[in-house]
Amino acid sequence: MRKSHKYIRSKIDIRQAQMEGFQHPQYVITINDITLNDYLNQNTQSRSFDLLVPPIGLFENRDQQKVLELLSYTNVALPVLVCSDDMDISCTVVTTNVEEMKDCIIWRAFGYGVDMSKPIHVPPLAFEKDQYREFVKVFKDFIHFNHRDSL
């Protein structure tokens, strides 16, 4: 684990909420009480992230298992948003590099694709380790709950 620079700590959460463009509530990741979609839109001055959702309830079981595995680790590329129409990781997917530092977890860089081949230029995000672990736990719980409902 590397020592982190002085990053401003952000609050991270995942929950269901009504989102513009959707008839029913969707899962959303929030950063300091705004959606990750809005964080990305504001920092890229675009609206390209509006119809993306966290990878919960992916159509392909193999894709869902991969996301579950990646959530358990740091120092990985983690898919955090996918196309709400396709619900898989073969279409539009936004990924972040998750790094564990001595005193926090950092989403250092963002990009399109599981390989992050097209960078998304936004500031990194840092989270307290305990809060990030709680976020991961709730994220996994949503995946398990959604998977159980689809059987």
Rank of each mutant, 00 (worst) to 15 (best):
G113L: 09
I34A: 09
F127S: 01
Q23L: 14
H147D: 15
S10L: 02
D149T: 13
P123H: 02
T96R: 00
V94C: 02
Q131E: 12
Q131T: 05
I120T: 04
H144P: 05
K137I: 07
I12M: 01
V136R: 12
D38T: 10
V94L: 09
I106F: 00
I31N: 01
E100C: 06
Q16S: 11
I29G: 02
N75Y: 05
V67W: 05
A17Q: 12
S48Q: 13
A77E: 05
P123A: 06
D141P: 02
Y132K: 02
D149I: 15
Q65F: 02
M87K: 09
V138I: 14
I14S: 00
M87S: 07
H5Y: 06
M116H: 04
P79Y: 00
I31V: 15
V67T: 08
F135W: 10
V82I: 12
L81I: 03
H5F: 08
V98M: 13
V53D: 00
R108S: 12
K66A: 12
V93Y: 01
M116E: 08
V136E: 12
I120C: 11
H121M: 15
D50V: 01
K140P: 07
S72A: 10
E99T: 11
F139M: 04
M116S: 07
R47F: 11
V28W: 12
E99Y: 08
Y27R: 06
N146Y: 11
K118P: 05
D50M: 04
D13I: 06
V93K: 01
V94H: 03
S150L: 14
G113R: 10
I29D: 01
D149N: 15
V67Q: 01
H147N: 14
L68A: 05
K6I: 03
D13G: 06
G111R: 03
D115L: 13
Y73L: 14
Q45L: 10
G113Y: 09
D63L: 01
I120D: 04
T30V: 09
A77M: 09
T96V: 10
I29T: 05
N61R: 09
G111H: 03
S48F: 13
T96C: 09
F59T: 07
F127V: 00
E134Q: 12
N146G: 10
V122R: 02
Q18L: 14
I34P: 05
G111A: 05
T96L: 03
D115A: 13
T44K: 08
H24Y: 15
T95R: 03
I8L: 04
V122H: 01
S72L: 11
S117Q: 15
T74E: 13
R9Y: 03
V76N: 06
R133D: 13
H24T: 15
V138W: 13
E69Y: 13
P123Q: 01
Q18S: 12
